[in-house]
Design a protein around this nucleic acid. Structure first.
Lengths: 147, 147
DNA sequence: CTGACTGTAACTGAGCCAGTTACAGTTAAG
DNA sequence: CTTAACTGTAACTGGCTCAGTTACAGTCAG
């Protein structure tokens, strides 16, 4: 089962498409078609990427979405951080009993352990850029230039 | 918002209590009291820890739960792996379009990136043992031996 | 045989998520 | 100025997972 939403996957996919279409904008419908998803869903996620200054959009006819930075300056962590809110781990819904020596003190320590584990995950995501990913995508494509 | 369930937190809390009660068994009701939670919920989670051979249980009167290993041989990763099934990240629910050069090839690459990020999280969790955690819990307790 | 336990099935209510419909606002092209 | 192609958002749906609970069968000690 899945912990986080699939928004990170959608965001990274969209960023890779925008990097592929160097400079030129894409519409939410074009991106949704590649994802086999829905334009509204895509716009919601791209809205978060825009709020994080990774991309920008223009309205009206001929509008669409474009990268705001070089693909070399956007990591998978940037995409993850823009669309996934909150923490990976959940804590107790009720605070533990203060009558128990363990329950009284475990809270902060557990939070610290979980945060450091999440930080390790985030640092690993930060090691790959959209440019890296796109390069590998194109390299793994047997017959180039079909679409 | 939370990605994973709070089962890891409950499992680690329970393991720390069992380590604290060196050798002697605890009942699901005692553990649930410290968690301010429910005995049935605790038994469900402890059942997973037993399936992973971290603890064992005895039924009937005077029964309960005990550690099956030294707290130094149980890491936070062991608890996490026993109770959290599946992956942290979700992928697209529909497979991406095969007509798009990006969509056609991003799947496996994204899976590999996500798996390596999860592995970093898991390795970090594996660096702390229940014995480490319990020691810090007891150290941070101002007045020892209340419970 | 009674009471203290584990083990499980079944149900509930809450929250999150992907997906969709609907519609208001914006812009370029004719 | 009208139309069509877009973004931007609100509102709703159905499905899923989760924590929490009730209920009850099985096990074991005294």
């Amino acid at each position: 089962m899945a912990g986080l939403s699939s928004r990170s996957a959608v965001a990274i996919h969209a960023l890779a498409m925008l990097a592929h279409r160097r400079g030129g904008p894409l519409t939410s419908t074009e991106i949704a078609d590649s994802l086999d998803s829905n334009p509204v869903l895509v716009r919601r996620i791209l809205g978060h990427l825009r709020d994080a200054h990774l991309i920008w959009s223009t309205e009206g006819r001929g509008g669409g979405w474009s990268l705001a930075r070089s693909p070399r300056d956007i990591t998978l962590y940037d995409a993850y951080a823009a669309v996934e809110e909150g923490q990976v781990f959940s804590r107790h819904t009720h605070p533990p009993s203060r009558a128990c020596e363990v329950g009284r003190n475990i809270g902060d320590l557990l939070d610290a352990e979980f945060r450091s584990a999440e930080r390790a995950l985030e640092e690993q995501l930060g090691r790959t850029t959209i440019a890296d990913l796109l390069q590998r995508i194109l390299a793994s494509d047997g017959e180039p230039r079909i679409h």
